[in-house]
Computed example of a mutant assay.
Amino acid sequence: MVDVTRKEDRRIQRTRELLRRGFIEVIREKGFDSMNIQDIADRANVNRGTFYLHYNDKYMLLDEIVRDTFKKMLRDAVPHQPRWERGTLRLIVLTVLNCFEEKYRHRQPSSRIPSALLENAIRDELTFYLACLIGSESSDSSKESHAKAHIVGWAIFGAATQWSREIITMSAEQMADVICSVIVTAGYNNEL
């Protein structure tokens, strides 16, 4: 019975991966607004009903793809068991900057992907990651740790978004140093 469950899990994973790949191919060709569920299902070589077994709509699929991509970027950039310190903060900031630079390339967002959805997913994942990191090393209550994560997350997110949409005036490394110095100066230096 255990083997059957594993096979089902693999089939689910494989189907989701096919849908994700189909989504990415179609969005590159048509853009988000012009694509529909049938386009994604056709590209993934599954029927439309199969799509709805896994996702409510294309927005849910986009959200999952963005979140998973961002989480992978964080996993690749930050040590396996990070500590809440300035070096870790800098790696997190650089990850966010690189993510937005990849998306916007120092120009206004493309209409091919709804930037608000993309940004909300990244901001939520960033805040969650920071809350876990800050909470694991803080003696603060969970409410205080969560509030700090939101504040630090918005500082990083806002600065990275603005930087990625402007004509480049400083490198990602320089911008990361500026963001980190602002966060540390703002009162988190007792932990960083």
Score class of each variant (00 low, 15 high):
5 T>I: 15
5 T>P: 00
5 T>D: 14
7 K>V: 12
8 E>H: 07
9 D>N: 15
9 D>H: 11
10 R>K: 10
12 I>T: 13
13 Q>V: 06
13 Q>H: 09
14 R>T: 13
16 R>A: 10
17 E>D: 12
18 L>G: 01
21 R>W: 03
23 F>L: 06
23 F>I: 06
25 E>V: 13
25 E>H: 11
29 E>Q: 13
30 K>C: 05
31 G>L: 10
31 G>C: 10
31 G>P: 08
32 F>Q: 04
33 D>F: 00
34 S>D: 15
37 I>D: 00
37 I>S: 05
38 Q>P: 00
39 D>K: 02
41 A>S: 12
42 D>P: 02
43 R>V: 03
44 A>Q: 04
48 R>N: 11
57 D>E: 08
57 D>T: 06
60 M>G: 14
61 L>M: 11
62 L>I: 04
63 D>F: 03
66 V>L: 06
66 V>G: 05
67 R>V: 11
67 R>I: 13
70 F>Q: 06
71 K>M: 10
71 K>P: 01
72 K>F: 04
74 L>F: 11
75 R>Y: 09
75 R>M: 09
76 D>M: 08
76 D>C: 03
77 A>W: 04
81 Q>S: 10
86 R>F: 06
87 G>P: 04
87 G>T: 14
87 G>H: 12
87 G>V: 07
87 G>C: 08
89 L>W: 08
90 R>A: 12
92 I>Q: 01
93 V>S: 03
94 L>I: 06
95 T>R: 04
96 V>T: 15
102 E>V: 00
103 K>F: 10
104 Y>E: 06
106 H>D: 08
106 H>Q: 12
111 S>W: 09
112 R>D: 15
112 R>V: 13
112 R>E: 14
112 R>N: 14
113 I>F: 10
114 P>C: 07
119 E>F: 00
119 E>W: 07
122 I>L: 13
124 D>Q: 13
127 T>W: 05
128 F>W: 11
134 I>T: 02
135 G>V: 01
136 S>P: 00
138 S>K: 05
138 S>V: 05
142 S>W: 06
146 H>M: 13
148 K>N: 11
155 A>F: 13
156 I>T: 01
160 A>I: 08
160 A>V: 08
162 Q>T: 15
163 W>Y: 10
163 W>Q: 05
165 R>P: 03
165 R>W: 00
167 I>L: 12
169 T>D: 07
170 M>A: 06
171 S>H: 05
171 S>C: 07
181 S>A: 15
181 S>V: 07
182 V>I: 15
185 T>D: 15
187 G>I: 11
188 Y>D: 09
188 Y>L: 13
188 Y>P: 02
189 N>Q: 15
